[in-house]
Design a protein around this nucleic acid. Structure first.
Length: 598
DNA sequence: AATGTTGGCGCG
DNA sequence: AAAGCGCGCCAACATT
């Protein structure tokens, strides 16, 4: 049952039971102690908490020792629905949604672009579609109290907050409206799953930030010292970098060159009679000059020092935990982004510093060859899908490429990314001949992009429409710049259908894994106030990176956690893709140090 | 001095 | 081996 949660300034809150269609099912009640009230409801049955934003509401509950099982995140669902209508740039916060609802703006028509797969999805959803139409026809939202003048809410200052009864009205009305908009989609069941998974992801993200990734500052410091020399004074170069910088200047005949400055390096090479287009390491590798090996070493170490050096350690690791802020849905494809700490770009060398607590262990799960498997399931190419039912996908496909696994891999990556350089063109031709349905799937997505249309993921996340600037550029034919940007958008939409559908799957995996992990702990089901947190004996999700999950758990629970990850992956495959021979295997490693996984 | 952009590179 | 897609972050550089 959905229950709207409106926290008040004094720590109390209004709760209101909602009907399945989102309308109020009972009078609102005021509770003085929100965590206790939520814990009690969690124990008494299945509840879906309808709140403004898990990112905003959940951390306080976690701090009070509480975990909840399910929620509906108004802001995240609003962003999905705005995107569905090609309105990615509009604000998705509750206040903005409430303002739009009050302005009584007409619902936008669904996006005109539909691929073959989406049409199939729409047919699968035909039954829900009939019901959805009824819901869409009926007025589902009662006008309530105007927060502070209708459309004005759109332009409220950033800190503006609704409170109390107004907040409850807004939550209830926007929630009901969102359910109706989902029901009116061409594939409501899928979009409903996406909304639920996105919301569950927001719970997982907040929990991961709260629990933190185990991180040993002493190990990190040793790694840095071994590579860079002892920690330098603030603002000065570590010993090894200083040595390399001096050697680099010497290699340029003693002329002072700051290796951090691409412009100075380009001039220095030019002075030696070597024109370089850029100072990227890939370009420099092809340059024959004594400064090059020094520069390559410098760049690698300097990167480590500036991005993940001692300053990073001071800023981001406390109490043996790295606590980044994850931004759910932060990437257009539905992948997560992160805010500060570079959580999704942790260099491989630093994985040595990620070490389980004594008596605990890390279970690291990695979805093997996720994106090509997703393409196989999306496209429904039988020959391709059957290859994806077995072990190594590229090995299974190698037969089509003269038994060469590497060629199969290049062909697949080129098909998904739109590359055509080198021998990729020939390999693509082979792919097109042997797996025409799969090739057509990505090529139709590319055509849609080139024509300025939008595409959607399997669960219905939409890519942004092209900008006005792109449209006017693309309209001018004959211009090589126009042709280039048209092709670039084709590569974007080609990749979007795969990357975004893979993100759908990963999100559903996370949503399926959370309750399985919660059930493994000694405390049993969630909703036990005062007992949650690190050291509570329960497995914790501590990291999620696109196609990889990490669970920190007591050693004795490693086996059940491995099983839970595998079961969640299977469940996600079934929920997202239905009946398909494609399997989504997750390779799991039970290790005490992240660096020892794979 | 503060803010915005670019080049480069880490991750998937 | 690199390339095609998606990001965040830093120092240097450009602009206001």
């Amino acid at each position: 049952m959905p229950v709207a949660v409106a926290p008040l300034a004094d720590g109390s809150a209004l709760l209101c039971d909602l009907a399945p269609d989102g309308g109020p099912a009972a009078a609102a009640v005021r509770v003085d102690d929100l965590p206790s009230a939520i814990a009690a409801r969690e124990r008494s049955g299945r509840v879906r908490w309808v709140w403004e934003s898990a990112a905003r509401c959940y951390p306080q509950l976690l701090a009070a020792g509480l975990r909840v099982a399910r929620c509906h995140d108004i802001a995240l669902v609003e962003a999905l629905l705005l995107g569905r209508d090609g309105r990615h740039r509009e604000p998705a916060a509750l206040t903005a949604a409430w303002g739009r609802l009050h302005a009584g703006e007409p619902e936008q028509a669904a996006s005109p672009a539909t691929s073959a797969a989406q049409q199939a999805a729409a047919q699968q959803d035909a039954a829900q579609q009939a019901a959805a139409q009824q819901a869409a026809d009926a007025p589902s939202v009662r006008p309530g109290a105007v927060p502070s003048g209708g459309q004005q809410a759109l332009f409220e200052p950033a800190g503006y907050r609704l409170t109390g009864a107004e907040l409850l009205d807004a939550l209830t009305a926007v929630h009901a409206d969102q359910l109706a908009r989902i029901a009116a989609d061409e594939a409501p069941a899928r979009l409903r799953l996406l909304a639920a998974a996105e919301s569950a992801g927001a719970l997982a993200a907040a929990e991961m930030s709260f629990d933190g990734l185990p991180w040993r500052p002493d190990v990190h410091d040793e790694l840095l010292a071994g590579l860079l020399g002892p920690r330098p004074a603030r603002g000065s170069r570590p010993r090894r970098l200083a040595e390399l910088a001096a050697q680099i200047s010497a290699a340029f005949g003693g002329r002072p060159v700051n290796p951090d400055s691409p412009a100075q390096l380009v001039r220095a090479f030019a002075a030696e009679g070597i024109p370089v287009a850029s100072t990227r390491s890939g370009v420099l590798r092809g340059v024959d000059h004594p400064a090059v090996p020094l520069l390559l070493e410098y760049k690698e170490l300097a990167r480590l020092h500036t991005a993940h050096g001692w300053a990073w350690l001071d800023a981001w690791v406390a109490g043996g935990r790295f606590r980044p802020e994850y931004v759910v849905g932060g990437v257009v494809s539905g992948r997560w982004a992160s805010n500060g700490g570079g959580a999704l770009q942790i260099p491989r060398v630093l994985r040595r510093a990620v070490i389980a607590d004594p008596g605990w262990t890390l279970v690291v799960g990695d979805a093997a060859q996720l994106e090509p498997r997703v393409l196989a399931a999306l496209a429904g190419d039988r020959a391709f899908a059957e290859a994806a039912a077995a072990g190594d996908l590229y090995t299974e496909l190698a037969g089509a490429f003269g038994g060469d696994r590497a060629k199969a891999k290049v062909a697949l990556l080129s098909a998904m990314y739109g590359g055509a350089g080198g021998e990729a063109g020939q390999l693509l031709a082979v792919l097109r001949r042997r797996f025409p349905v799969a090739a057509e799937y990505v090529e139709s997505a590319a055509r849609a992009g080139e024509e300025g249309r939008v595409v959607r993921s399997v669960l219905g996340r939409s890519c942004p429409p092209p900008s006005a600037a792109w449209r006017s550029l693309a309209a001018g034919s004959g211009d090589p710049g126009a042709a280039r940007s048209v092709r670039a958008r084709g590569r974007f939409t080609r990749n979007f259908v795969v990357q975004a559908s893979a993100a759908d799957w990963a999100l559903v995996l996370l949503a399926c894994l959370r309750p399985r992990l919660a059930a493994l702990g000694p405390a049993g089901a969630p909703g036990t106030a005062g007992s949650a947190g690190p050291g509570d004996g329960r497995p914790h999700l501590v990291f999620f990176q696109h196609d990889e999950v990490m669970v920190h758990c007591p050693e004795g629970l490693a086996g059940p956690v491995v099983e839970a990850v595998g079961a969640a992956a299977t469940e996600a495959g079934r929920l997202v893709f239905g009946a398909t021979p494609v399997r989504f295997p997750v390779t799991t490693a039970v290790v005490s140090c992240y660096a020892d996984a794979k």
